[in-house]
């Protein structure tokens, strides 16, 4: 039997390979992210001073929604073809396996958001001084979205129409991330120090990294029963 760590690596590699073979599906949440953000100038105003004010919030809300929409793929196909059940039946530590899946999911959905965000910041005339903070908040925040979202997905994966329910369960839990992250970008745009908010985001990341896999593993077992 393989060790826990090599299983972690194997599972990570498997999920990344599977994602690579369905590249077009990966693009959808990103396209959603871009389209939602480009709707705001059309709906509000094309003035740079108006867009500047709403830019941090809009980018972060769009990132939140994009992360949430991409969540469903985390366990769905594994649940449907039974491999999730096999994972739960192995002697390996289930929270660790869950963590591998969440990490893979973040690498294929969260990381592209971080790369794209500065360009979308340009579209909304976000000041250059806030660009780095935007990237930093996304780098600290999107893993939290994947980790916390995984709990919600694991609870709803057995349901036929879990999509809307998932948003109801997960979005309230995303609020602290939104507050700290968008707050930090706002402060940075006004030229204030933002280290405090980044520390808070780091603390939230550590908290969700340590607790969320256990809750997710418990939820997976409930959904499988």
């Amino acid at each position: 039997m393989t060790s826990d760590f090599s299983t972690f690596k194997l599972l990570l590699k498997r999920d990344l390979t599977l994602a690579y073979r369905h590249r077009s599906e990966l693009a959808n949440p990103l396209l959603f992210f871009i389209i939602v953000i480009s709707l705001f100038p059309l709906g509000i105003s094309s003035e740079s001073k108006d867009l500047q004010v709403i830019a941090p919030g809009v980018i972060w809300v769009a990132a939140l929604l994009a992360a949430m929409l991409s969540l469903d793929s985390l366990f769905r196909s594994d649940f449907e073809d039974g491999s999730l059940e096999q994972m739960a039946l192995t002697a390996h530590f289930l929270p660790l396996l869950v963590l591998a899946k969440v990490l893979a999911h973040w690498l294929i959905t969260g990381l592209p958001l971080i790369v794209l965000a500065p360009f979308l910041g340009l579209l909304l005339f976000l000041p250059d001084s806030a660009m780095l903070t935007l990237v930093a908040t996304l780098a600290l925040g999107t893993p939290i979205l994947s980790l916390v979202g995984a709990i919600g997905v694991a609870l709803t994966v057995g349901l036929r129409r879990g999509g809307v329910l998932l948003s109801l369960l997960v979005l309230p839990l995303y609020i602290p991330v939104l507050i700290f992250a968008a707050g930090a970008v706002n402060e940075a745009a006004r030229g204030f120090p933002v280290l405090g908010q980044l520390y808070f985001l780091g603390a939230l990341l550590m908290l969700s990294l340590t607790l969320a896999p256990f809750a997710t593993a418990a939820a997976v077992r409930i959904s499988l029963s």
Partner: peptide
């Protein structure tokens, strides 16, 4: 039950963040 427990962990965080 799992969701309520996750919520309990989150309530203080939400409270202080807002």
């Amino acid at each position: 039950g799992v969701l309520a427990l996750v919520g309990v962990v989150n309530i203080p965080i939400i409270h202080y963040s807002v």
